[in-house]
Design a binder for these strands. Sequence first.
RNA 1: GGUCGGUUGGUGAAACGGUUAACACAUCGCCCUCUCAAGGCGACAUUCACGGGUUCGAAUCCCGUACCGAUCACCA
Length: 479
Amino acid sequence: MKRIRTRFAPSPTGYMHIGNLRTALYAYLIAKKDDGDFILRIEDTDQGRLVEGAVDIIYSTLKECGLKHDEGPDVGGNYGPYVQSDRMKEGIYAKYAHELVGMGKAHICFCKEEDVERQRQEAGDSFYFVDPCKLLSKEEIDARIAKGEEYVIRLNIDPEGTTSFHDEVYGTITVENKTLDEMVLLKSDGYPTYNFANVIDDHLMDITDVVRGNEYLSSTPKYNLIYEAFGWDIPRYIHCPPVMKDEHQKLSKRNGDASFQDLVEKGYLPQAILNYIALLGWAPEEEREIYSLQELAQAFNVKRIGTTGAIFDIEKLKWMNGVYLRNMDMEAYYELVKPYIYESADEKFDYRLIANAIHDRVSILSEIKDMVSFFNKADDYDSDVYNNKKAKTDPQLAKTILQEVYDSLKDLSVWNNDSIFTALAERAKEKGYKNITMMYPMQVALSGRSVAPGGATAIAEILGKEESLSRIEKALSRL
RNA sequence: GGUCGGUUGGUGAAACGGUUAACACAUCGCCCUCUCAAGGCGACAUUCACGGGUUCGAAUCCCGUACCGAUCACCA
């Protein structure tokens, strides 16, 4: 069996969006499942649409995700991406296009773009472009070229008959040739069209599996016609369903939808994002959802890619990101979380204790800032925060409870979670209170919040004795 | 409009002619618990867009309808 080779072939026209990334992921997984090669090729044949920096974003995104490509031109000791505009300079696309002309499979066309466009407008739906240039004699063509007249090269398509191709996810699709038009292969500026360059490079680079979005489904018959004209092997086609924003629209940067970069900035882990999008349009055989990149490559199976657009559900990503955070070993987790704690909690506090307190409740890194901001200064709050159904507390009761708390803690010599808890639990028992009735008012006094991470005693430990007592006193004075 | 494709719950989805239609997220209960989370347990599609057909039997096969999407460039 031939070594599997896939490629990710984005055009540098903007940001890397989620749907694109998923296509890259699938291409990578398909190659890696069978120990094959994954190639990165930048398709920049439209000089008018280049966006500066776009290649860098593609590059850095793939790198962050661990989607490493296996070959490419040497760039400072590393593999760079293949770039079509560079390859174009070597004349390879023009060479193949002219070769087809020589074989009688394509022809030179002098028609002006605007003229063809106007005909299209006038004819409306039934338009089928019959190229008058096909009738030109060899001498006439040569003469016009010699004169310097601009031309394009178009593929010859017999309008009779049908063309079929097989797609690994959508099955066999057949279309009538008369619905296909004689596409331009080489543009008048000498650049190849996307479709042509794509076929040439896929062939030259020995790509065995063409992985791309299903919007290419309808142009695939034309690809086949090019392969057939050259007599080349046709690759396996794997068209992926779109990643949707909602029932109607695809996820796109244009609509202001979150890109990979945006998600990372919000505090999602690249690995979690990758894991999540792998599941958008593909289902593993086992009942498992958490996979590392390596495990995905193991488990991936083209047969289980779906055909329906999948809506991107940020809630589930959030959940999955939380799973990744909780599964990390404590040291890595701590290092990751530290800078976010730093954003709103003073360094005099023990970050490890804070990290510990928020461990089970963080799902996105960016929410940590708000989560721990009360350490520096308790939130302002209204006294009805003391009303709590479960603790059966109200502002009135809270006042007596806080006094109890204060009295139990003011002479405590060892100040840590355990000692604080023990002291309060004892006092609660003495007075006939449930623990929660004792703890809840303290939590409010210390944080100003009805919901705070870690529990009242853990917060007290982090704040320290002096600060804790002062916050309780202050709360007392306001009741 | 032509052509091509799709249609299982709020979401991702499994099922490959015979199951109580998995599982996960979300939601809602309950338990645990010093709040919230996390964790545990449970509820949540009498039904697979709709209508016909084939079959002893259909979410699964066939046909039609509806709806959604893609594509019809010297853009990728």
